[in-house]
Amino acid sequence: MAYIGLSVAAFVAVFPFVWAFLTSIKPYTDAFISPPVWSFTPQITAYEQLWYATEFASFGVNTIVVGVVTVIISLIVGAPAAYALSRFDSRISLWLLVLALVFRSLPRFVVVLPFYSIAQALNIYDTQLMLIIALVAVNQPFTIWLLRNFFAELPRELEEAAQIDGCSRFGAFRRVIMPLAGPGLVTAGIFTFLLAIQEYLIPVVLTQQHATTLSVFIASFGIAEDTALYQLIAAASILLALPIIALAFLAQKFLVTGLTGGAIKG
């Protein structure tokens, strides 16, 4: 019973992507007929065109660069802050939870519109710098909350011992705590990276063409009603989705912890 139910649920979950994949490899004449055609000669024309005739590759590189830099900055800023908070008494961390929740619940536009004005004024509109600043700002409360939960589980005696052995407070953090916090950092890193790739509203408002990410690139074609492009969009969607789907399997343990935001461990 459970296996049948789960198979149905899993089928519903992934079928739209299977459909998009079929659309991307059908010959143009077969792709847009109703009722749908099931037997056809697969072809990769859409993928070739996507690669050679559009800016898919350069937007892809840009997406990865923005994602990686966002992760690095988020962790460098977030880890010490989260560590400090994990060593305060619980009253302050309660307030932090409320603050993180409130910030998380803010509509994106509250952040994006002021950033848009500032970017115009400072002439950094449509740059990777502006995009990364906005992404870090939006994701930071959650990153810190997530990391705090990991740090809170490491016993205080560890760094006290290190300090007795002659480490400074920061030295103890760097040499003793950080290596132990590996899984927490990986979780926070994966999570931040995913959020940076998924984000649509921030890059669509703050970038135009230089710093645009793949989500925006695909979405802009998706809204434009040009049948000739639809197979390219399908191909692009598949190419972007595949690595992320692989991640859902390979890093499942980290993802589960990150997505539930430490809610389960509390």
Partner: peptide, 29 residues
């Protein structure tokens, strides 16, 4: 199963919304 069920959630929302809507779109069959 969890891996498969996670797919719609981890793929960017705009991409998921696009391919999801195609199933309902007569242009796409």
């Amino acid at each position: 199963f969890l891996g498969l069920l996670l797919v719609p959630y981890v793929v960017p929302t705009v991409i998921g919304a696009l391919v999801f809507s195609w199933l309902f779109n007569s242009t796409f069959g």
